[in-house]
Amino acid sequence: MVESLIQNMEQTNDGGLAQVRHVVLVLSGKGGVGKSTITTELALAFRHAGKKVGILDVDLCGPSIPRMLSIGRPDVHQCDAGWVPVYADAQKSLALMSIGFLLEDPDEAVVWRGPKKSAMIGQFVSDVAWGELDVLLVDTPPGTSDEHLAVLENLKKHRVDGAILVTTPQAVSTGDVRREITFCKKTGVRVLGIVENMSGFVCPHCSECSNIFSKGGGEDLAKLTGSVFLGSVPLDPLLSSSIEEGKDFMQSFPNSATFSAINSISQALLSSLQND
């Protein structure tokens, strides 16, 4: 009785996140490894699997998701429950809220120091009216600093299922992601798994595979740190051009190796969330 009362109270305090079933952070200590790309493709894969998905983009200096989903820069509105997210589809199964939407001039550099960023993220994170979602993916900037701490502080009031860590195969990247695992431990975030991105490029002309950024580093890191390895995504020009044009890669290239890779990662992730 008391418990359910407390739960009810928490729910009202939760505001916009009350009906969000799972919250997953996408993190990497390293820049440019494909956090935003993987976030976008996983969201699309979840949607194709019939789930309701949301993306929260908290990269203030370089928000990429609006472009990757071809959403551009809509006007966002507020309702009683907070900011109304923007939907990428008519069925409203893919919702996006980017901190970029709240900036006055999208081309202007956001030259803010940490405390100001933290304050903005703090307000923003708890103030989006997500409605009912199966999964909320949170795309973050690289590093382990103000933005990450601010996001966690605010999301943890609700729930955070854990984080997926994105790395590219080479040591320069896995070295940074190794430190990110420590960040997760220290902040009490469960590592749901590691994704190796940009592993291996198959030449479209002769089918020869070149490991431009080396190979296998993500899997090795998972072994070394006792983390789950969720899979690797090849370096695929069709993926980068879909991302450039904001097209749904998962819909356009269902027969590609990249599609299968992303699909199996999304399934592994979903089942790990549901088995919780």
């Binding site: 200590g29 382990t144 600093s145 430190r179 960040f183």
Partner: peptide, 13 residues
């Protein structure tokens, strides 16, 4: 150690 993370906010950086 290679596992050390630098979890610092702006002013400390």
């Amino acid at each position: 150690s290679p596992d050390d993370a630098v979890i610092w906010r702006g002013p400390k950086k």
